[in-house]
Simulated assay, not measured.
Amino acid sequence: MTIKEIQHEIVDEFSMFDDWMQRYEYMIELGKSLPLIEDKYKTEDNIIKGCQSKVWVHAEMKDDKLVFSADSDAIITKGIIAILIRAFSNHTPAEIIDADTQFIDEIGLKEHLSPTRANGLVSMIKQLKLYAIAYQTQLN
């Protein structure tokens, strides 16, 4: 599946819920299915700056695709990073760099987060893209 197709799938899933309490519960469930980061990667270097809670993200190349793992000490934040990893993991760095994040607006995520969580969301997206840029640079 392309990043765009995965994003459409996520938008469709969120549209099944009538209210934001159900969407938050769904995000918490998604967080529980997150590919967890190994403890050895839970370092200062892997913490996303700009998040209120602690979020660790690790990236590595496997078969020319970038694979992310993550964890957070907050359940909603864990759900947010799980959504982003689902959309961007297992794609090439170039695909991740070129991908837009319009789907975040389509599910209404930013407007239903506190300002600090919304800033954290932006920081998470930025960090995933920075990993992609770093790996893309290594490939060239």
Rank of each mutant, 00 (worst) to 15 (best):
M27G: 04
G120Y: 02
I104C: 03
K129E: 04
V55D: 08
A132G: 05
L121D: 00
A118S: 15
A99Q: 01
H112M: 09
P35C: 01
Y41E: 10
H58N: 11
K54I: 11
V67L: 13
D100Q: 08
S89E: 05
V11A: 04
G31P: 12
T116H: 09
N90C: 14
S53H: 05
Y135R: 04
I6K: 14
M27Q: 00
H8K: 14
D98E: 12
A70G: 09
A118L: 06
G79S: 07
F68W: 07
E13R: 14
L34A: 10
T101C: 08
S53A: 15
P115G: 03
K126I: 02
I3R: 08
L113W: 05
E5N: 10
L113M: 12
I10K: 01
K126E: 03
A94R: 14
I48N: 01
K78T: 06
G79D: 03
A82F: 05
D39T: 09
I28M: 13
T137Q: 08
R86G: 04
N140P: 08
K32L: 11
F68A: 11
A74I: 11
M124D: 01
K78I: 09
L66R: 08
D98S: 14
Q102E: 12
K32I: 00
I107E: 04
D63E: 15
S33Y: 03
I76V: 15
D100N: 14
I83Q: 10
R23L: 01
D63H: 10
K78M: 10
M16F: 10
L66T: 00
I10N: 00
N140C: 05
I104G: 00
L121S: 01
Q7K: 09
I104S: 01
K54D: 05
K4R: 13
I81L: 12
T77I: 13
D18N: 12
M21H: 06
I133D: 02
A82W: 13
I76A: 08
H91E: 05
L66V: 10
T2N: 12
